[in-house]
Design a binder for these strands. Structure first.
Lengths: 243, 243
DNA sequence: CAGAAATGACAACACCGTTGACATCAGTGT
DNA sequence: ACACTGATGTCAACGGTGTTGTCATTTCTG
């Protein structure tokens, strides 16, 4: 009997009957998603150090111990947050037109990754080096490998340049996110370091620094990112042409 | 009179008379350097989370409170550690032969950065996004700008590609270091994810992943790093040729 | 309707960064 | 030689962290 009702309500869920109250299991995942949502808003509002289990509980009007019934520990919560981030990237990438060149598809992915990093720097800092093994991660990997394959590279080369592309993008996004996640005062100090410190170095010992001092402060992180990703795409083009 | 003795002992220090006991100020910097040294060994032995003020004090056979007389807070200690890391990189770069091409000098710098990151992944993870404003950082910036200038790029372009080079190198090194700094069990999980998860995806929905599965596990991080840095150097070459 | 499962609140543990109070010792000026 | 000032070290404490266990209460199920 128990099995029947469970099966029934699960079948019901797939029909989308909204009047029926959700199963226990459904409630559980609903609450997990609520926790992930709250983690996003909390981390971006309070910074990297502000995302603690107690404050997350506060955000959900619930004791922190409850979170340990939804996630084994904080790390598992972060993995769920990470998977959600990847989902956001996949959504941001959207549909790839059939006639789009593989170069433009890579550009589209790089742009989506950057946009998401810009929107959630604290989350990016906390999760950029993790692997979720979740469905959205798998979809993104598939899209990237399929795109690289379109360049005509042999499988081993395609994999090499896939990882080059991904890790370069991730590394730069994480770097930018880490800078955005520092204390505002430290951030200000770093930003003005060029004019505060480097402009006053002795010109005889630091001629190159002096010669370039006017331009050092005015390179935007986005321009830098685009320049690097174009360099990687060019490298892939040349490797594909050689094959 | 007080001033005279102070001046005397400082002059003495510069003469290198080892029999004389050090000034208070010298003792202070000696202890600071000892703390930085201990921070390195402790962080690499116990991991990122193992570098705490209390344990660092233990390592030095001293109460943790003493450290707050050497550094204002943990962040200032980390900045000192970071400057020391840069010093290590500068040392690793060594003397640049006068007839070396600017490309090879960039390769030399990239290699040194990678080597140091490999040696101290935990420290790299803790400090990669910081700016010290210290003397070794200034020297490294000067060397890199001077090298970029040798390519013949105009100052604004030289600065753009200098930052592209640096941030790409730093981002990739930090990414690698972060992976090396995860719990060994998590690290193992991530490393085997390709065969554990991706090899069992349905082939009809994930054809590209399936087609490349044999190669996915066998890309070394160093090869990936070298590939990216060569891509950046090629981009600089093309930009220089266009100018 | 009784029993089992889920949920929630609370206290507690060990550890963290950081600060303040106090004792001790070394070096200096008179 | 002595008093004194400043550096050094020890200890306890504060508020915070991740995490676990206990216990009551609610909710679902057989």
């Amino acid at each position: 009997m128990a099995k029947n009702t469970a099966t029934a309500s699960r079948a019901q869920r797939s029909t989308g009957d909204a009047t029926r109250q959700p199963t226990r299991r459904e409630r559980r995942t609903l609450r997990q998603e609520a926790a992930v949502n709250a983690a996003f808003t909390l981390a971006e509002r309070e910074g990297v150090a502000g995302l603690t289990m107690r404050r997350l509980g506060q955000e959900l009007n619930v004791d922190a111990a409850v979170l340990y019934r939804l996630f084994r520990d904080k790390d598992e919560l972060l993995l769920a947050v990470c998977e959600r981030t990847i989902e956001t990237i996949v959504t941001e990438v959207g549909e790839v037109p059939g006639d789009e060149s593989w170069q433009d598809t890579l550009r589209r992915i790089a742009e989506a990754t950057w946009q998401v990093q810009t929107r959630f720097p604290a989350i990016t800092t906390l999760t950029f080096a993790r692997t979720t093994g979740g469905p959205f991660e798998a979809r993104l990997v598939e899209l990237q490998l399929a795109t690289l394959a379109r360049s005509g590279l042999a499988p081993d080369q395609a994999v090499l340049y896939y990882r080059t592309f991904v890790d370069t993008s991730l590394g730069l996004c994480a770097h930018s996110a880490a800078l955005s996640s520092l204390d505002p005062e430290v951030q200000e100090k770093d930003a003005t370091a060029w004019t505060r410190i480097y402009a006053h170095l002795p010109a005889d010992e630091y001629p190159a620094t002096r010669a370039h001092i006017d331009h050092l402060g005015s390179v935007s992180r986005k321009l830098l990112y685009d320049t690097t990703m174009e360099a990687v795409i060019s490298a892939i083009e040349r490797a594909a042409a050689a094959a």
